[in-house]
Every structure is written in C-alpha cells, then in structure tokens.
Amino acid sequence: MSLDIDTVRTISVLARLRVPPEELPALARELSGILDWVEQLAAVDTSGIAPMASVADVSQPQRVDAVTDGNCAAAILANAPGRIDDYFTVPKVVE
C-alpha cells in the first residue's frame, strides 16, 4: 500500500503531530513500508494457530481469591496520627 503526501499530512493532523513539509515525503515512504510489512503478515495462514499472549507457554502462580482483613490492623493503625480503638480519627469536614 502506498501513501501519498496528502494522506500523510492528514494522518499527522489527526495524530496532532507537527510535521515539517520537507519531511512529509520521507515519512510517506516509511509509513508505506510499514503498511507493506503488515500486508505481508496478513498473508500468513494462521488458521491452525491458537492465539497466545507470550512466546513462552508459562502461567503465573495464582493465589486463592479470598477476602481477608490482612491480619495487620495493629501495624496499620500504628502509623495513624489519631485513632480510637480500631478506627482512624479524622478532622470533621462537614458541618
């Protein structure tokens, strides 16, 4: 696919890029080369290939999805500037 200078100028305006007029022909050649490469990739038959997120077939260790209190309330409240029992105290902001 070949892009002309007017199309590249339109793309640069849509992308909010300031491209000097003397750089438009070189940019048009580069973008045309990228689109040609994408067309080559589209021609490859991938019908028997499963989609994957990584080249290596590994999975991350999973933890049990359970709600807990963290068992560290005392450590968290130790950093509080003010507290009453097991609660933070904050200045009143609404009358």
Rank of each mutant, 00 (worst) to 15 (best):
A56H: 11
T89K: 02
A42S: 07
E39G: 07
A15S: 12
V67G: 01
E30D: 13
P81H: 06
S32N: 05
P25S: 12
V94Y: 03
P21W: 01
P20M: 03
G48R: 15
K92N: 08
V55I: 15
D45C: 06
V8L: 01
I49G: 00
L27R: 08
V94N: 04
G82L: 14
V44D: 04
L41C: 02
P20F: 00
T7G: 07
D6I: 10
R63C: 06
W37L: 09
T46S: 08
K92W: 08
A42K: 05
A26P: 00
L41W: 00
V19K: 03
A73G: 06
L24D: 01
T7L: 04
K92E: 09
A28Y: 03
R63Y: 08
T89R: 04
P81L: 05
D6R: 15
R63D: 13
V19C: 01
S54T: 15
L31W: 10
G48W: 10
A78S: 13
A74M: 05
V55G: 01
E95H: 09
S32K: 12
A78K: 05
D86V: 02
A74I: 07
S54F: 09
A43C: 02
G70C: 13
A66T: 11
A66I: 13
L31P: 03
V94R: 14
L35T: 09
L31M: 12
T46K: 06
L27F: 04
V90M: 12
R83I: 04
P25V: 12
S32C: 07
R18K: 14
D57S: 11
Q60L: 13
I34R: 13
S59T: 15
I5M: 00
V67S: 09
M1C: 04
P51K: 02
